[in-house]
Design a protein around this nucleic acid. Structure first.
Lengths: 141, 141
DNA sequence: CTGCGTGCAAATTATTTGCATGCGC
DNA sequence: GCGCATGCAAATAATTTGCACGCAG
């Protein structure tokens, strides 16, 4: 199920398989999308010895390796998620709720941009801001 | 050209028209999109006495008033731009260049999301990440 | 005159970095 | 055993806040 075997991915680069790395990746996959701090919390729940610093370093490493990506959802909270879990984020500016939709919705737009401007949109990195059904309703109050 | 008269907008809320506010708004409009620090630089070029703090406070105020909005373009750099200058940002992850396209490209997508999920996308707040024509070319090197 | 808005400096939060030790290979 | 990765603590960057004065209304 876990599409990318971590040990292999690391070995392929002459890097090492360690507990913190394993745990951080699992946390990323489990939480779906989370800030470095939230990930640290989650990891700490299992292994108390993990340092926030290590989470940052590990995330940076994983990002270079293409295992995770990060996006800015709300106000300056960088959010990490597994690269093999591609989806578009719908961030509600009213209630802060983050919803997800498949990337296929962006396909037409991506095609247009590629054709028109030669710009290759990274569809796994998209966050759209707006108002969800509930908050849009309240807005008309 | 300046579609919203600042003094009026401020007075309408019982707020005051001051030099810093005038300057910050002008800077936002002139730069198109910029970080708080860049705006501070720009403002300082004209009036040396303006404090970074004031820029932050003024931007926050303007945002509440709906005069400017902010988006996160690259890695955690909040970028402000005038609300009446709506466009979609195309951020190249290769060279960092920020391009702009009209919001009309998002219309079909926005319609689909509204119809499908009841989510009202704020099209003036969208940033799409990816690779521009130049960087996509180098990628195949 | 009356308070809002500003400048200044300090506080707070988020993130990065250096160094010595431990562990994977 | 060798060197990468980690933990710890301190450094740095980014943003916010408190207070007293000056200026807009």
């Amino acid at each position: 199920m876990t599409s990318t075997p971590l040990p292999d991915a690391l070995r392929a680069r002459g890097l090492r398989m360690t507990a913190p790395r394993q745990l951080v990746l699992e946390a990323v996959r489990r939480l779906g999308h989370a800030t470095p701090e939230q990930l640290h919390d989650e990891v700490t729940r299992t292994a108390a010895g993990i340092n926030l610093t290590t989470v940052y370093r590990t995330l940076e490493l994983f990002e270079q390796m293409g295992l995770v990506t990060h996006t800015h959802l709300s106000h300056g909270a960088p959010t990490y998620h597994a690269a093999d879990d591609q989806h578009v984020h719908l961030v509600c500016r009213g209630c802060g709720r983050v919803d997800e939709v498949g990337t296929e919705l962006l396909a037409p737009l991506a095609a247009t941009l590629a054709d028109d401007r030669g710009f290759a949109v990274d569809v796994g990195h998209v966050a759209l801001f707006g108002l969800c059904r509930d908050c849009a309703g309240e807005g008309s109050r």
